[in-house]
Design a binder for these strands. Structure first.
Lengths: 114, 114
DNA sequence: GTACATACTGTGTGGCGCACACTGTATGTG
DNA sequence: CACATACAGTGTGCGCCACACAGTATGTAC
């Protein structure tokens, strides 16, 4: 048999974990409501579960990285989120972190090649 | 005050999480024992705690991605680890995943720029 | 008007894996 | 003999995601 699929799947999930917040923060530079956020992320190739998304939005707002507002649009009440100033700062720092980690991983992965 | 340092630190840790396994698997294409692995990773810019490293090595071995062997070197018993064939396959797939996630994140982060 | 899809926002639980603190032996060195 | 450091662990707590579940509102086909 090939590598057990569930093991690989678990590793994939683990690898995805931290990137979710980065993707959410990056997308919320433009205002979005939950559902449109999920849709946009999916289009970019990032599938996020509602059970992960909504609590994450709450968390980020309680940390002051996001601000939200109930508003009517298209005959519906929706909660709109966007980055706060602190959130923009956090996004910048996390992006820098991400690039640094990328460099480290690339040096490791390319480095060992025969 | 700037963005609370502990919040950012937590986000950084979260972001790092998944990359640890990838860094470990990548480094173990060449045989290493725990301590030298930790040292090598640190040189590449990846600090990993022993409390994370050793259990991870166990886990990866129990999943068949690594093989290990006790051996004496420099008058000391050390446990040497290296990638198994399955591990090499997993590394390849995870690397591909990583690149895909990178592309997705880049499109998100660059994309929104004014 | 009723059945169904889908837009839209949530909650609760389980489990996995990292960080942190701690333990313990062996080797080398002043 | 004291101390550093190489080396390999263990145990606990906590954070966060996946998965399953819940519930309302709008549009549409019949």
């Amino acid at each position: 048999m090939p590598i057990a699929a569930d093991i690989l799947e678990a590793l994939r999930l683990e690898l995805r974990r931290g990137t979710l917040i980065l993707a959410v923060l990056g997308t919320l530079r433009a205002e979005q409501y939950g559902y449109s956020l999920k849709t946009r992320l999916a289009e970019a190739g990032v599938d996020i579960d509602e059970g992960a998304l909504y609590p994450m939005l709450r968390r980020l707002e309680s940390q002051g990285l996001l601000v939200s507002e109930w508003r009517e649009e298209g005959k519906r009440q929706k909660r709109f989120y966007r980055l706060s100033a602190d959130g923009a700062g956090a996004l910048e720092q996390l992006t820098a972190e991400w690039r640094a980690m990328n460099a480290a991983l690339n040096s490791i992965i390319e480095g060992g090649r025969t």
